[in-house]
Every structure is written in structure tokens, then in C-alpha cells.
């Protein structure tokens, strides 16, 4: 589903590569936490999977596409099979909840009928029924992230990428978002989530990939945020 091989990513003007010889394979339906300090390379990895960046060296295959060679006009069609959420929600402040979600379908040319059917469905799924006419500034942080999640999954993506989705939320709210993401995962969507949230990683006991200085230093199934005393590199 996602295969990253010997990937090195250097940004212009920096001596140290953001990612150094990274190899990672993620299967369909998996739930993977990417952990590590700021600047360890988590966001770079997500940018590569989204094809916002191209690796300096190495191979990136996602959903059967070779993301190094894919022609740029095909990139949008590739991205339609992905859903993304961020720490800062990225909602449009001048559109209501419903319009925000509908916007992501309108711009990929979906029909009005499909949009009118899909948006209430996904709002129910994320627990925002009845709040479709609110504007983002009328919602709490947790509710905004639910809108962002709704937007990410409304097109039924095969992969959900989440870059610190709970980074701006308090503990209880984070729990709610996480159980929603887990439900999305259980429904068959592969989830890759970069996070700093120790409590969450420790509680959910999923696969943990730890990055440090652009290298994978740990890849552990059912792992926790910190490496166990006994080691646990695999």
C-alpha cells in the first residue's frame, strides 16, 4: 500500500538531509504512529506520501503509483485517494461546515446530487449532526478537527494521513478525535499519523515508527511512545 525504499530527502540550503536512507512498508488497513522529536522527519515523510515533495533519492510507491515518476497532471487524481488532516485544521473561515466539506467534492467535479447525499452522512459519522450551518469560528477545536476529518474521509480515501491531528487539542478532546480515527481505520482505511502525544500512542498500542535525525530508529508493533527498556528495535 505504501512502500518507501532507501529514501533520502534533502532540502535546498540545508546540509543535513531531512530523511536519510529511510525504508518503510505499510500494509493495507494498518494504523501507524510516526513519532519523534520536531525535525526528526515525520512531516517530510507525510509530504512524500502526499507527493507534495519528491525524494532526492530512493523510491516512493503509494497505492500502486510510483510517486517519483508520476506525471504532474496525474498527481491530483492520485491525491483523491488520500485524506489528510493537520494540526491547524485548515478550514475555510468564510464557509459553513457543510460548505467546507462540499467544497472538497465540488473542486474534484462531483455532482450536486452526490454531494447532497454524502455530506450529511459524513457529518453524522463524525458526530456533527445539526452543526452543518455553523461557521468554523463558532466551533470548538475538537469540533473543527471533526470537520477536517469529515472533509478528509468524505471521498472515501484508501489512506488517511494525519499530521499531529491532536496537537491543538486538550486530552479529553483528543481522545474523542482518536476514537473517531480508530473507527475510520476499522472501516478499512489505512491510517498514518504523526504525533507527539505520548498518552495516545501508549493507549492505542498500534504500530510505532520512531524517527530521529531523519532515520528510522524503531519500528515496533503494539509499541509505546518511548522504546521499552528491553529495546525493541525490529
Amino acid at each position: 500500500m505504501i512502500r518507501i525504499e532507501n529514501v533520502t530527502k534533502k532540502y535546498r540550503g540545508t546540509a543535513r538531509p531531512a530523511l536519510n536512507q529511510v525504508t518503510l512498508e505499510i500494509e493495507k488497513g494498518e494504523f501507524v504512529f510516526l513519532v519523534g522529536a520536531s525535525g526528526s522527519g515525520k512531516s517530510s515523510l507525510i509530504s512524500l506520501i502526499l507527493r507534495e515533495e519528491v525524494p532526492t533519492k530512493g523510491l516512493v510507491h503509494v497505492l500502486g503509483e510510483d510517486l517519483v515518476r508520476i506525471p504532474s497532471r496525474r498527481v491530483p487524481y492520485f491525491r483523491r485517494k488520500l485524506g489528510v488532516v493537520f494540526q491547524d485544521f485548515r478550514l475555510l473561515p468564510n464557509k459553513t461546515v457543510t460548505q467546507n466539506i462540499a467544497f472538497s467534492l465540488e473542486v474534484i467535479g462531483r455532482s450536486r446530487g452526490l454531494i447532497e447525499a454524502a455530506v450529511p452522512d459524513v457529518l453524522r459519522l463524525v458526530g456533527l449532526e445539526g452543526k452543518g450551518d455553523r461557521y468554523p469560528n463558532e466551533l470548538s477545536g475538537g469540533e473543527r478537527q471533526r470537520v477536517a476529518l469529515a472533509r478528509a474521509i468524505v471521498n472515501k480515501p484508501a489512506i488517511l494521513l494525519a499530521d499531529e491531528p491532536t496537537g491543538n487539542l486538550d486530552g479529553a478532546t483528543s481522545e474523542g478525535i482518536m476514537s473517531l480515527i480508530e473507527r475510520i481505520n476499522l472501516a478499512g482505511t489505512t491510517v498514518v499519523m504523526a504525533t507527539h502525544d505520548k498518552a495516545i500512542v501508549d493507549r492505542f498500542k498500534k504500530r510505532v515508527v520512531e524517527l530521529s535525525g531523519g532515520e528510522i530508529i524503531r519500528d515496533e508493533r503494539g509499541g509505546s511512545y518511548r522504546a521499552a527498556e528491553s529495546g525493541g528495535e525490529s
Binding site: P76, Y77, R79, K81, L82, L92, V107, R151
Partner: peptide
């Protein structure tokens, strides 16, 4: 730029953008 960022993320085609 906000709209454009979202359009790119959700895969709006270049033509559409």
C-alpha cells in the same frame, strides 16, 4: 491561498484550479 491549498490537497485537477 487557503482555498488553493485545500484544492491541491483534495486533488482538484490543475485545470480546475
Amino acid at each position: 491561498r487557503r482555498e488553493l491549498g485545500i484544492m491541491r490537497l483534495v486533488g482538484a485537477s490543475n485545470f480546475y484550479i
